[in-house]
Structures are given as C-alpha cells and as structure tokens.
Amino acid sequence: MDIQILYKSGLIIVILLLSLVIAMYATLAERKIAGFFQDRLGPNRAGIFGLLQPVADGVKLFFKEEFMPATADKFLYVLGPSLTMLIALLGSAVIPWGNTLVIGNNVFPLQVADVNIGVLYVFAVTSIGVYGIMIGGWSSNNKYALMGAVRAASQMISYELAMGMALIAIVMMSGSLSLHDIVAQQHGIHWNVWYQPIGFFVFVICAFAETNRTPFDLPECDSELIGGYHTEYSSMKLGFYLFSEYINMFISSAMIASLYFGGYNFPFLHELGMSHNWLTIVGTFVLFAKIGFFMFLFMWVRWTLPRFRYDQLMRFGWKVLLPLAIVNIVATGVIYELFKK
C-alpha cells in the first residue's frame, strides 16, 4: 500500500510539472504559430528556435514592478490570480493520462484519482474558475476590470450549461461518470466523436468560451477593455493570469481528447502485438499528440476568427448551443433506445 501512496505522490508531481512546462511552452508555441499564420517567423532569438523565450518572459515578469492600486481590496487582489492558477491545475487530477503499468504484482494506473464522479469533478472545478477572474476584476476597483469580470462571469456561466448538456449525452452512452471508464469504453477507433458529432461540436465551442480564448475573449478584450479583468495587474500576478489561460487550454484539450477522441486509445492497438506496458506508454504519447492537436486548434482558431460582440455571444450561447445540446440529448436517447448498440 505504501508503494501506491509513493507512486501517487510522484505522479502528482510529474503531472503538475508537466502541466506547467507544457503551458510554458504553449506560450512560445502560440507566439510562433501566430507568427507563422501572419507570414512572420515569431520569436527566434532567445536560444535556438526561441526555446528560451518562455524563460526570458518569466524572468521579465518577476522583475516587473509589483503594482497594487491604492483602492484595491488587498486580500482579494492577491487571492484572484492565486485562485485562478490553483483551479487551472486542479482539473488534471482526474484525467487518465494512460492505461495501467503492471510491474510485478503492482498495478500503477496513470491517473491520479479515478473518482467515480470524474466528469462532475471537472465541472465543479471549472465552475470555480470563474471566481478567480471575478475576484480579480472586482477587487482591482477599476471600471474596465469590473466590466471584464462581469463579462467573464456571464459568459462562463452561460457556456457551462451547454457544455454540461453536451456531456450528458456522453454520460448516457457510457453509463458512467468516471473518466477512466469513459476512455476505456472508446477502445480502438470507437471514439465518441463518431457517435456524438454534434455534442463534440458544442463541447469544443464551449471549451473555447470556458478558457476565454478568441472568439470568446470578451473578458480580456484588449481593444475595448484595455485588458479586462487583469487591467490593474502587473508582475507575476499578471503572469499567473496569463499562464493559467494556457494551463486551462491544456486541461481542456486533454478533456476533449479523453471524452471525444478516445484518450490514450488508438486504432489497431491490439494488432501491434506489443506488451501491455508498452501499449500504455505508446497510448500516453498518442494522448499527448491528440492534446497537442487540440491546443493547435485553439491557436489556429484564435488567429483566424474575430471576437464576438457581447449580444452575439449571449444569443449564440443561449439560443443556439443550449437548444442544440438538448436536441442532442433527446436524439441520443431515442437512437440509443431504438438500436441498443
């Protein structure tokens, strides 16, 4: 039993560091990809291919002036970015990063916590995510920050509904709320995306909104709200806000990959004739390739689409996505009953 506790602690540290490193290099990837989409090269001066750029950015943020508005609520002002960062990292706990590793008599699952309410847990955590932005924007005592925070709150609450509705269809099909079970059921190429294309679409769009990425970046909205909820933030507190966006992106990509694209499953995995442990390792790499693709999709969309107008955002969320998700639930139920797959 001790070895399991030791293993879980190690896994937690590894996943934590991995999330941070991936988010760190996602900032570089974002800038590189943005450059490429705009016929530029992107940062390439710090280290080869600009690989030291995130380090330079981090160091820069640490040495920036730590500014706090005189009228800000001191405690909440610090709590905002901390909470955002904490919650962004919490989501990684239930995602199955791979199948199990069998060493001797011990079975090591590549998942920190296989809770039977995994999906619900992720939703609970992401809904707390709005507090980080709300608290930060409100405590800054700045009109733009407050406006951004209010937008963020209404946007995230609206899109969470449709997101949850899209997921209900998945839960109906799998009959389980555990992420481990949902992924395990999508063995081979039986990915949920083939059975739930509309649900997938709704989920991805909502994931964009939940992570406050373009075309749903109204909380930040630099051209109208200067910087939205983080207008008054500087130094590493701003860094936390910016950084948590990339962690959120990573976790969201992992969620999309696990729920709809089979997680660590890949086609013909049993025809390869590899041992169980090797399959697990390859599967983990496959999962990360899928995550990488979705992170690229996030960036691709960001550098293609313009921002929604606020009324369009609300209309789209409530009048298009939510009904679509509900229709999807009904359709799933009817088809499931008719064919009993």
Binding site: I33, G35, F37, D39, W300
Partner: peptide
C-alpha cells in the same frame, strides 16, 4: 481557417 492554414506554409516575409 483554410486561408490561415495556407499562410502557415507560405514563405515568410521576415
């Protein structure tokens, strides 16, 4: 998105 992707592979002006 297709248009932006086509720019991804064009020769860079830098």
């Amino acid at each position: 998105m297709f248009i932006t992707m086509s720019h991804f592979f064009t020769k860079k002006a830098t």
